[in-house]
Amino acid sequence: MASEPLWRITPQDLDKLMATLEVERAKLSRCTLTAGSQLRVACNDAPTIHYGLQGSGWVFVNDEPPIQLTRHTLVIVPPGKFLVIAGSDHAFRSRRCLGSLHGDIFIPGSSHRCSVGEGEPSVAFVCGSFRAFYGAAVDLFASLTTPIIEKFDVHDQLDQIMNYAVSELAAEDVGGGPMSAALLKLVLLALLRRCLTSVNPWVERFSILSDPPIARAFAGMASRPSDQHTVQSLSHSVGLSRSAFMARFVVAFGESPISLLRRVRMRYAAELLAANALSIDQVALQAGYQSRSSFTRTFRRHYGSNPSGYRAEALRPSDANPAHLVSGSPTFGESTADEQ
């Protein structure tokens, strides 16, 4: 039986942190499997999300214990994991059986509907990939090494949200991509709320949540990147000494506060440039730079181009179109700057 986590982030700190959450590149498919069938999901450099809509199936991720995928079960698999999703059947509870399977590998989001097997589906679910960031710079799942498993219920309405997100992508209408990303953000926000109550072990695997004062300081810099943040002002805002703040920040994020602040500012500036609503001087001020030359030097080091060049490239239309399936049959369990 799961034990209560050793700590809890406060609702106030979690609320501030959730306000900085951004979701990008949501790619979603509605999948059905019959009993005894299986879907081999491509190893992805982004997290994958799986939400049970109807019936029951099994998710097998590398060497992890089998995960039962039932209605309203949410499973998020960290990047770099090869997985198989199977329709309910005794045979598929053995990883030995899965290891001998061959065939095509499904890329989440490459088609909006995917059906495997003939007859009545054993399980229906949404399968997808995405990117999620705090403050446009910190990958929400960077520290995650094992799957997140959380059970919701009908009152949470996540099944409706997931179906709506898939429909938006399938319609290929104007704004479908941003709309689906916004809907997926609702799902992740519902998951993060569970940090206040869930006893499942995934709660303690987010390093950013393991130290509430540090999470609060990060939320401040991420929500107000134009402020003149310093290590001294950030440590003072959360009631820590400078040295204690520095040490705990590096443990939580793997880099110094100023280094992370620079990345937050650059990601924010890149979004403003791509939106094409502000001049470059205005973007520099919004990103916390009083000097355009200092901003340009830092941006060039971070992105490899000047702000004007980045904006021109961001406004160029993209015609990328992923393939539905890629051939291959890997063995199951194989994971195929200047600051002012």
Rank of each mutant, 00 (worst) to 15 (best):
Y310P: 03
L53V: 06
R311I: 08
L192F: 10
I76M: 08
P178V: 11
S293F: 15
G309V: 07
S235W: 00
S122R: 02
T296K: 14
D211W: 02
L315V: 04
A247Y: 02
L315D: 05
L69I: 05
A270S: 15
A142H: 02
F133Q: 04
L325H: 08
F332G: 11
S110W: 07
I49S: 09
N163C: 09
A136I: 01
A275H: 06
R113C: 01
R262T: 10
Y164D: 14
A35F: 08
L21H: 05
G239P: 03
P201C: 03
R71G: 07
P212D: 12
V126W: 04
R96H: 04
R113T: 13
L191D: 06
P212I: 12
P257Q: 13
V174Y: 12
L33Q: 10
A312D: 10
I161V: 12
W202I: 02
A215F: 05
F82Y: 15
V251L: 06
E339M: 11
V123H: 08
P225V: 05
I107K: 06
L98D: 04
P322S: 02
P178R: 13
A217G: 14
R300C: 14
S198D: 00
A86F: 07
D104L: 10
A219R: 07
M179N: 08
G87S: 09
T331P: 07
R262C: 12
T32C: 03
Y134G: 08
A323D: 11
V154S: 08
V41A: 11
T296G: 11
T298P: 00
Q290S: 14
T34C: 05
